[in-house]
Nucleic acid binder design. Sequence first.
DNA 1: CAAATGCCTG
DNA 2: CAGGCATTTG
Length: 345
Amino acid sequence: MHTGPIPAHVSIGPEKKTQIPSVQELPHTEDAIKSRPLEYYESAEVQIPEDQTEALSLVVRKPLSHPSSVNQAVKRPFPLHQPPFQFNYSSPLHENQILEHLLKYGPHGNFGSLPCLPPAVDRSSPDSVDLPWDTMSVRPKVSSTQMAHHARSTALGQVTMDGLCLPHVKMECGDLQSLAERNPYMSLNIQEGLTPNHLKKAKLMFFYTRYPSSNVLKTFFPDVKFNRCITSQLIKWFSNFREFYYIQMEKFARQAIVDGVNNVEDMSVTRDSELFRALNMHYNKANDFQVPDRFLEVAEITLQEFFNAISLAKDTDPSWKKAIYKVICKLDSDVPDEFKSSTCL
DNA sequence: CAAATGCCTG
DNA sequence: CAGGCATTTG
C-alpha cells in the first residue's frame, strides 16, 4: 500500500486553486483525504484529521513532544526566544519540508503536527500569520520564493534548533524518566513521527522478522502514534530491508557460482562470512547487538535457495524470486519482548 | 475503482 | 531510505 504522503515537490498549477469544497463535500475518512490530490490540501484549514500529520515521511529527529521544555530542562542553551542561529548545516531539506507543509496546509496549517516543528511556533510573527494564503497559492510561481523567506524567518529558526540541539541531547533512560516525571506532557513519550532510533530498532528487529505484520509493528513500537502513514513507512522500511537482504543473497550466490562452487553444502553463512558482514554492517552498523544464531541459519537457507535457483537456471523466469520469498517468509521468528519496551535500546 | 505489492530510482 | 509508478488484487 502506498498511502504515503502526497508527492512532495509537486508544483501546483495555478489553475485549480480557489474552489474550496465545503466541509461536507470533503471526504471524511482519513485515507480518502490522503488519496486526494493536492487541491484539497491547499484549502487546508478545513479539518485535517488530527492524525494527518506525518505527511512528510522523512525520518525526523522528533523532539520529545515538547521541544522547548525539553531543551530547557536538559540543557537550556538558549533563551526562550530562539534567535535563529546560523543555518550552518545544509538545510535545504528542512526548507523543503517547510515549504511542502506550507503548500499543503497553508500558513495556518497546524505546524505543531509537522514532525520537525514544535507545536509552539511563534504565530505572533506578523509577517507570517497575516499573510493571506490565497494570494500565495494562487500564484505559486511568484510566491514560492516569498514563502521560502517567510519560512526562513519564522519557523525555520525553531527547526534549526531542533535539528541541532536534539542530537546533542543524549539522555539516558534515567534522565528521560526523571524528566518525564516533571513534565507530564512528555511522560507519554509518544512519537508523532519515526525517529532514527526507531529505524535502528527496526533494523535489529529484522534479524528476527523479515516480514513483520503491521500488528507486530504496532506492538513493538508502543511509543509511536500509529496511523496509515506511519504504518506504511514502517512497512516500507522492512520492504527496503528485505530488498537489501535479497540483493546481497543473490549477489553472493552468483559469485559463488562464478567461483565454481558446485553444491549447496558449500554455501554456508557464519559470522565470518563476507555475506554476514555485509548484512551486519547494514542492519547493525554499530555492531552493538548480538545477532541471533537463527538469523545466520535463515540467511544460509536464503543463500542456498538462491544458489539452487540460479544453478538450475530458474532465474530466467521473471518472477523466479517469488518462490524464494515464499520460503523465507515462513522462517520468521518472534521478536524478543525486550524490543517492546524500546526507548533505550 | 481503490488498496496493496513490487520494482527501480534518486 | 523514500518517491513514483506499474501492476496486481479484491
